[in-house]
Design a protein around this nucleic acid. Structure first.
Length: 768
DNA sequence: AAACGGGAAGAGTTT
DNA sequence: CTTCCCGTTT
């Protein structure tokens, strides 16, 4: 290990310093993974730290296993004893050992958001509310936020003030109770209970404080209150803390991430120093310039500037399409062109990022038609598919018979004559007798409101489960699944259905089997603790994210949301849908200023993923709820100086002139032409508040003699007019809205993009 | 009990 | 345009 050769001076400092609590400000692409890896290797090899005493928290499981692998490459197999995982996996692992203190069984299962939502819905109904009046989603959100602030249901009740909170105050305790009865935890409980465990049990706390001599946390800017609390509990002042973060890449405030965790770092830990990594090794200069220029527009951020020694590289590109299809086609065409070029690029060098999962569809459709191989991350995840969830429900039920959500999910899947009537009879019986639904279900003989024939069906179902449980004792999970298919006729029913959809489901199930097989194999070989139990398998499945399954060897284009893109890098990056209302998202625009700043950081994250080339695309028309609406170009495009852009609308010679778009040709005037053909589209705009902005001063009211607007003729501006602005040059009016005695205009300028201005004060004139 | 159809609501990002 | 829920029919 030749640290001096491998690291720059700041990186080296971060690796070698073992005296202080360290806060590393690591800009995008500044080699923080490298620093983390070398740091750990250095600790083990040079400082003689026991790997078992090292805790490293990463943002994804994939990052965790990668880091582990790299460390093992450097230090050998002793590295396997490190604790490297996400917060959630760490907590699950800890609770596995200690949860009995809370009256849970160590075989607890983890409910994903869907399952938790179902349980919440049950609780709402049980409390006597109507699901239409009390939205399960809002309740779930409120409970989740509460747990993430370390407020349990008892404290919540005390501080519930508004009517909605009062309602949640009734549901929250019930929900916790139901979770407990089902021996289940939701995602937030994992963190919440771990914190409580350490708080309430000094002996446990001390045990882990002593074990973890070094605590390293990656992506610290995205930690929330509970997570910070957890770290603080593990810290006793004599062990060491090392965190890495970048405030410009903080994109999870909606999930409770607290930037104050960074700000208060020096108060929370002793003897702190800050090290900044500002040299970027990933991107070419133009890309970095664009990212820097963009992020400069954020008010709240610490001062820093990424720099690079890299060559200028290629300018970034922008393209404004007519609609989503054309936008997707542009992406496809560019990919094809670049691959055909001499830079020897293949599909896996490309990534396409978007703001919302739904946006992947347009791209997908075009890629299928044009035969471009791709993989989508997020959206409808593999494990979210009905058939897979059914399998997991069966498995969960085998592992934990108290799992009411899984039981109700599969009790009649495939249909076996145990329908809603029966379920509500059991429900009623359990309520009347003060027992849980599951208890009533397994004791079906006592419920004589259920007909004998139905009771027989339930007995059959229960014995299927029992038999599968026995079967698992001397078979692998894979074999047990096959047995499950056999005994429930699950596959058979799908085959009989014989639709494209059902056959597709069979394929997915076979893939599921492969996943399980690989899982079992890999775990048996790597980990010594021999036989992987079903329970371990389920825990891991609950906590994997889609990105964890990313396989960099497959030669396909990658499609994912910008949030998922964090921590990854690609030679060529497309960000699509750069439109006001999409990115930045409407909900951020109508929210506070902070929200738009977070969107901007998200865009920054996207751009800085690219090593060689960035494309920012948008389209004029966009479908929402099956309704086509026009969209203004995103402000983020306007915030990046024009000198850094290649305008593909000009540069590309008419890619898409023909079929769908009629006479439409792509050139620099595309925006203008469109609105002239469809002026009526702009008239149905509702009133929107005008984000005031500051050209109104000086020379506005007094007309100077340059011809820029005077007196009352400003009322003559209308949608579609081409105008010249004193500072920004030519633009086109996209919207005009009368206010009391003025005209609010949305104008797209060639130089700066979209601006909102008041006709009476802005220095603009009409161009003939 | 299951299948079908009409109507309403809905998609912001995730462990 | 989708998905989900509910009421109706078989």
């Amino acid at each position: 290990m030749e640290l001096e050769k491998e690291l720059n001076s700041q990186q080296l400092k971060a690796v070698l310093n073992s005296e202080n609590s360290l806060l590393i400000f690591a800009g995008a692409g500044s080699g923080k993974t490298r620093v983390l890896t070398y740091k750990i290797a250095y600790l083990i090899k040079e400082r003689g730290i026991d790997p078992f005493g090292i805790l490293a928290i990463t943002f994804t499981n994939k990052a965790a296993s990668e880091m582990k692998k790299r460390v093992i490459d450097l230090v050998g197999r002793v590295g396997e004893y490190m604790w490297v995982s996400t917060f959630h996996s760490f907590c699950a692992r800890l609770l596995r050992r200690e949860i009995s203190r809370f009256g849970y069984n160590e075989k607890f299962i983890i409910y994903d958001s869907d399952e938790s939502l179902k349980l919440i819905s049950r609780c709402i109904t049980d409390t006597g509310y109507d699901l239409k009046m009390v939205s399960p989603k809002s309740v779930q959100e409120t409970i989740s936020t509460s747990k993430n602030k370390l407020i349990d249901h008892e404290s919540f009740i005390k501080r519930a003030f508004d009517p909605f909170e009062k309602i949640v105050a009734r549901i929250f305790p019930l929900y916790q109770d139901e979770l407990h009865k089902a021996n289940a935890l939701d995602f937030d409980d994992l963190l919440f209970l771990t914190v409580r465990l350490l708080k309430d049990n000094p002996d446990v706390k001390e045990k882990y404080q002593n074990q973890f001599q070094y605590i390293l946390v990656d992506e610290f800017q995205d930690t929330n209150l509970v997570q910070n609390e957890l770290i603080l509990l593990l810290y006793n002042g004599s062990n060491k803390i090392f965190v890495v973060g970048d405030d410009d890449q903080s994109i999870y405030s909606w999930r409770g991430a607290e930037i104050s965790n960074i700000i208060n770092f020096d108060k929370n830990f002793s003897n702190t120093i800050v090290i900044k990594l500002e040299q970027n090794y990933r991107s070419t200069k133009f890309i970095l310039d664009a990212a820097n220029e963009l992020i400069k527009n954020n008010y709240s951020r610490s001062k820093k500037k990424l720099w690079t020694q890299s060559h200028a590289g290629e300018l970034i590109s922008k393209f404004r399409a007519q609609n989503e299809q054309e936008e997707a086609k542009f992406v496809a065409k560019k990919i094809r062109d670049i691959i055909a070029g001499k830079n020897k690029k293949s599909f896996k060098d490309f990534a396409i990022f978007y703001r919302t999962n739904a946006q992947s569809r347009a791209i997908e459709e075009v890629f299928i038609r044009e035969n471009i191989p791709y993989r989508i991350f997020g959206g409808l995840k593999f494990y979210d598919r009905k058939e897979i969830k059914d399998m997991l429900a069966y498995l969960k039920l085998m592992s934990n018979p108290k799992d009411i959500i899984s039981l109700t999910r599969v009790v009649n899947v495939p249909a076996r004559g145990i329908g809603n009537t029966t379920i509500s009879h059991i429900e009623k019986f359990s309520q009347n007798n003060g027992i849980t639904f599951c208890e009533a279900f397994y004791d079906i003989e006592k419920i004589n409101t259920v007909s004998p024939s139905t009771r027989q069906k339930i007995r059959d179902f229960i014995s299927i489960l029992d038999n599968l449980r026995d079967y698992l004792d001397n078979h692998t999970i894979e074999e047990t699944i096959e047995e499950l298919w056999e005994k429930t006729s699950y596959i058979k029913e799908l085959a009989i259905e014989n639709t494209i959809e059902s056959l597709n489901r069979i394929d997915n199930l076979k893939e599921f089997l492969t996943v399980i097989k690989e899982f079992e194999e890999s775990h048996n070989s790597i980990e010594e603790n021999a036989k992987l139990s079903l329970h371990d398998f389920l825990q891991e499945i609950s906590l994997v994210s889609e990105v964890d399954n990313y396989d960099e060897d497959a030669d396909t284009v990658t499609l994912m949301t910008l949030h998922n893109a964090k921590g990854l890098e690609f030679p060529i990056v497309f960000i699509v849908g750069l439109e006001e209302g999409i990115f930045p998202h409407v909900r951020s625009i109508t929210g506070g200023y902070d929200d738009v700043e977070e969107e901007r950081r998200l865009c920054y994250v996207g751009i800085t993923r690219a090593k060689e080339k960035v494309f920012l695309t948008s389209s004029i028309l966009h479908y929402i709820y099956g309704d086509q609406r026009e969209r203004l170009i995103s402000r983020f495009i306007g915030e990046i100086p024009d000198e850094l852009f290649i305008d593909e609308n000009k540069a590309t010679s008419l890619l898409y002139s023909s079929e769908e778009t009629g006479n439409y040709t792509v050139n620099k005037k595309s925006v203008f032409q469109f609105s002239k053909n469809h002026p009526e589209r702009y008239s149905k705009q509702e009133s929107r508040s005008v984000d005031m902005f500051s050209t109104k001063s000086k020379d506005s009211k007094k007309s100077d003699n340059s011809g820029f607007k005077k007196e009352k003729d400003f009322l003559n501006f209308k949608v579609g007019d081409l105008v010249e602005h004193k500072l920004w040059g030519n633009g086109e009016i996209l919207r005009a809205k009368k206010s009391v005695d003025d005209l609010e205009l949305d104008v797209v300028f060639k130089s700066v993009g979209l601006k909102k201005i008041l006709a009476s004060v802005a220095p603009i004139k009409k161009i003939q």
